[in-house]
Write a protein that binds this DNA or RNA. Structure first.
Lengths: 349, 349
DNA sequence: AAAGTTCATGCAACCGTGTGCAAGGCATTT
DNA sequence: AAATGCCTTGCACACGGTTGCATGAACTTT
């Protein structure tokens, strides 16, 4: 009637079982399987063989309890789909981290900063309950007391991509992008193309990265001897529709600008679509430059000129540093990189 | 000179510490913090207070060792960026799972089926080392012996989205989409729009889902009394460029078809872009229907008519069933859903 | 042949928590 | 007053590993 629920349950075997079979103590088994030099080759091989035959695997909880190492890393990252742009951008970054950790045979627990239902801090939980050995943080909005908790916990961690707001990060290991330079480069491309009046479509938030991009925009203007006009900076969300609408809102006023710096690719694509519908030629009439180099920019026409951040490299470096910290227990902020972005010249800008 | 590396390390406190402070045995502390009815309210409150004051948190390894529950679930899913289309599609699904698990305060270890560097099976590792309580599988290519391992391990799991190939899944809990119906609906939209000769752009793989979509395409044709022409089925990868190139390859032959069923949104968008460049009007001259309802289709013009799979619902149901299995230990294949997709009518088809 | 080394292994404690069973205190019943 | 029962708590062992130290055997050295 009702299936015997243990029907398929494998008998779990432990090092003690192996010890019994091999006629040795369980310490010897433990040492053998961990390749301790204390044990003779002959015994080791015999025991490894037995373990193999029985498909033995260590119980990770027991091992963690004893060694104080879990072999898993927490990755704190935002919703991939709160804004669509995020998914395009973050995917590759998280992917890169997964690979970097895999290389060191580390597992990863992906987590939001806090539980959406209980509002409990996942960061705190993972650390204090000792579920993880280290932390990779990619998130614009870590609460100050979580930072404080991370700091006092002494757990190895690396911060990527988002500069912590309202919290001193001079003592952390981090890897950021120099968005001032990014914004400046993007704007300069437009200026070099002859633009004199550049619309800046930025995200309506206080995130440091967007402030920096706008800052770069201003610097480039200044360098070109063009007065900064606050009217030309428009804030919205990081979405296609914002770019589209921003242009449509100005359809009677299209001569008021000759270039567009969109601080996100998707916004740029929205703007381009609007321009196309209005019969404006990109880049002939108006030049457009995006930011982030999501895949999309490669596909749609005109192909998007944009600012690239080396995401795979970010991920690789972050993992390497974290693993180093795990091994050496040396938490000093040795890696504090602010990487220059790269301009990708395509058709739109 | 060199920082004292223990400077910030918090002294870990255990239930024994609390026991000592409270003047009770550690069993009493354990029972109190787990709200056992055996302990008097007065004692419980006193102990909870002390635990709170000390910021006590259970050591999860110790707890797992004792209870045989880790409170974490493995999610097996593919590269998000091997093909760009994947990232668009899978992101929301994985996101939904993360939310569903979070609701039950479960952590999740995201993993590829096997380690890219060591080729070791992550599925096996996670299960046999007892790192997880359950498994959510979203992957087209799980090796047969991994399925076998999952089966004999008796671990609770739910399969989503991809039907296992070359392995009987009648005993599993699963949630798939009826892609035959999806393909049929998509094709029917084109037929109803007056198309008589429909190009089918499919992925060049044996994945069941693509075979099913093509199958649905054939059925719809048959129902409309149109002979199936193998020449009209073209296989490539699931990318924008494939759709683009497929049309460009036929630019001298554009009258040979009047509709396009692309088995992935990105392919459809590529085709539409090519048609636009060739001066062909969509949908007036040629109708195009995509598949998957990635966000992209909402943005680009003409807006893409496409087949929607309710990904959030998939994720939610899968989590619910898994959690039920975790609690009840009842592994019977009670949930075997094949969900009908939904047609999204927009502009292109 | 006795003493000293080296090597391989076992003993026992420990990591932090859960839990069956026994025991003690106290109130109730006979 | 003794017997009974309930409520609360502690003891001791279990979970499955790791590791410092002691031990005994085999091998050198004097």
């Amino acid at each position: 009637m009702c299936m015997n629920q243990n029907e398929t349950d494998k008998q779990t075997i432990t090092i003690k079982d192996i010890a019994r079979i091999a006629g040795v103590s369980h310490s010897t088994v433990s040492r053998s399987l961990n390749d301790s030099p204390l044990i003779s080759e002959r015994t080791k091989n015999r025991i490894k063989k037995i373990a193999d035959d029985l498909n033995f695997a260590f119980n990770s909880s027991a091992q963690s309890l004893s060694t104080r190492r879990t072999g898993t890393i927490g990755i704190i990252y935002p919703e991939l789909y709160d804004t669509f742009g995020n998914s395009l951008y973050m995917g590759l970054l998280v992917q890169g981290l997964r690979h970097g950790l895999e290389k060191a045979s580390l597992d990863s627990i992906g987590s939001f900063p806090r539980n959406h239902y209980t509002a409990e801090s996942n960061i705190r939980k993972l650390i204090s309950r000792k579920k993880i050995d280290g932390l990779l943080v990619i998130h614009p909005e870590i609460p100050v007391d979580d930072w404080e908790f991370i700091r006092t916990s002494g757990i190895p961690f690396v911060v990527l991509h988002f500069k912590p707001r309202s919290f001193d990060y001079s003592w952390m290991n981090y890897l950021f992008t120099d968005h001032v330079t990014g914004g400046r480069m993007a704007t300069k491309v437009l200026l070099d193309g002859g633009c004199r009046s550049i619309l800046c479509l930025r995200e309506d938030s206080d995130e440091i990265q967007f402030n920096e991009r706008t800052e770069g925009y201003k610097i480039a203007l200044q360098e070109a001897g063009i007065a900064y006009d606050p009217q030309l900076v428009v804030a919205g969300d990081c979405a296609f529709d914002f770019g589209f609408q921003a242009i449509m809102d100005r359809k009677n006023n299209l001569t008021s600008f000759d270039g567009i710096f969109a601080e996100a690719d998707l916004v740029a694509l929205g703007a381009i679509e609007a321009l196309r519908e209005l019969g404006v030629k990109v880049p002939d009439d108006i030049r457009v430059v995006g930011y982030d180099d999501t895949e999309l920019g490669r596909y749609f026409r005109p192909k998007l000129t944009t600012v690239h951040q080396p995401r795979e490299e970010h991920a690789r470096l972050a993992c390497e540093r974290l693993i180093e910290m795990l091994d050496s227990r040396d938490m000093r902020p040795i890696m504090q990189k602010v990487i220059k972005p790269l301009m990708i010249y395509r058709e739109s800008g």
